[in-house]
């Protein structure tokens, strides 16, 4: 029998209490229980970054966190513009720069960009490249994504 745990967390600024299987990962809870499907599953092993979220303020791979470990956490996903206002500017910059092709990596890229800009509001090109180094994109060749992050940092600074 699968053990379940009662946990609570704040997701995009709202408090939730729920019961989760001990052997689930946080990504599955976000997608299947909370029905927030912006966060994607790519590799499921921490290499592609498609599941990147903010967990207590830091970017993490949601596919590598056991659901019970999220007890008490503050979580922000790509849908969390209510609590992270910068998300709107970053999303807009991605659209304006054409930094999206198939779109699968985009939520993860945006969350890594958010984490970067929260830490470093004016990153250099090499800092942007380092900031998104945990996210794979198979379409764009990254150039437009880097431009989008640059544009977002300028827009937010205005």
């Amino acid at each position: 029998m699968v053990q379940t745990m009662d946990i609570s967390f704040a997701l995009n600024g709202k408090e939730y209490k729920l019961s989760v299987p001990a052997n689930a990962v946080l990504l599955d809870i976000i997608r299947d229980k909370m029905h927030l499907t912006g966060t994607k599953e790519g590799c499921g092993r921490g290499e592609c970054g498609a599941c990147t979220i903010l967990f207590n303020g830091r970017s993490v791979n949601a596919c590598l966190i056991l659901a019970p470990q999220a007890d008490g956490a503050e979580i922000v996903t790509v849908e969390g513009a209510d609590v992270e206002r910068k998300l709107l500017s970053i999303q807009k910059a991605f659209v304006e720069e054409g930094a999206i092709q198939c779109g699968f990596c985009t939520p993860g890229m945006i969350m890594s960009s958010l984490y970067l800009l929260n830490k470093n509001p004016n990153p250099s090109i090499s800092e942007i490249r380092e900031g998104i180094s945990g996210n794979l994109c198979r379409c764009t060749g990254y150039v437009k994504i880097i431009k989008a992050v640059e544009r977002a940092s300028k827009d937010i600074g205005k």
Binding site: G46, G49, T52, F55, R58, S59, V60, N61, L64, I65, S112, Y115, L116, E130, G131, S133, G134, N135
Partner: peptide, 9 residues
């Protein structure tokens, strides 16, 4: 080590 996400965790 890893990536920003891996180093954060």
């Amino acid at each position: 080590i890893g990536s920003p996400q891996i180093r954060n965790r």
